[in-house]
Amino acid sequence: MSVETVRPSRFRLLSDNERLLGAMMLAPAVLFILALVGLPLLISIAFSLSDVTVGDTSLDYVGLENFRRVIRTPQFQRAVINTFIFTTAALLIILVLANILAVLFTQDFRGKWLARILVILPWATPTSLGTLGWLWLLDSKFSPIDYVLVQIGLLGPDTLLGPGLHLNYLGREYLAMGSVVLVHVWRLVPLSAVILLAGLTSIDQELIDQAQVDGASGLRTHLQIKLPLITPIMAIASLFAFILIFTDLVVVFVLTRGGPIYFTQVLSMWSYNKGIEGGALAEGAAIALFFAPVLLVAAILILRTVRRIEVT
């Protein structure tokens, strides 16, 4: 009996070779990241070490001169501090509010669908558009919030909030800083709430039932059963919110442009001011590169957390 040798097709060879197939499947994503993240990052590094300007794109090496130049300016120092203050403050508030909302949405109540739509709207709205809305709400002269405060007797002569008819939210140091945090919270609470809601709904109901049979209250069940179980998910939500706030340009650009004085200046805004408005591309790139180490740490933490979720 003769045995006929069947030669496997090239496609079969390819599909059986996991390493080759894996590499091929990953290639588009890798190319995408290299082109849209890796290349700009390399260009930024090259810019920051050169004397490039908006009108002269030739790269003459100047070492770390741009970094030295930007670090000693008060605007930069304030921008670094503010970037961390805004990120930390907004993140803490977001976590609390997102937890409350997520728990709320696990309950059944009338009008839940409407509440869900309203909560998700800020996330669905483009950041620039939403922030423009806030710019109008917080306007020095035409703020509807001021109007309401005046009407209910909280603002105006002989009232709790002072004699003026306007609070000048964006013209006072702490109110302006608070306004920036507020807008970040407004736009990112929905994202975090949805992520946490996904975590809460994935908890095995038997665990909750057991805790309730053992007499645990709703709060205790949440704090001691649910929260520990969704901690990895919460870490993901926090890291995403952290990155989105830390690198954001739009909110400060639209709301305060870094003012009053430098009180709301952040790294992204200062980088734009120097690089684009001031024509000093090299210094703008140097400022932007200060994001890199922080974002690198955040990325590593995200990946480690995701892996932990996969393992558990």
Binding site: L135, S140, K141, G164, H166, N168, Y169, L170, G171, R172, A176, T256, R257, G259, P260, I261
Partner: peptide, 9 residues
């Protein structure tokens, strides 16, 4: 003036 001038656009 008032503090609004610090929020000028």
């Amino acid at each position: 003036m008032t503090e609004e001038v610090f929020a000028w656009t």
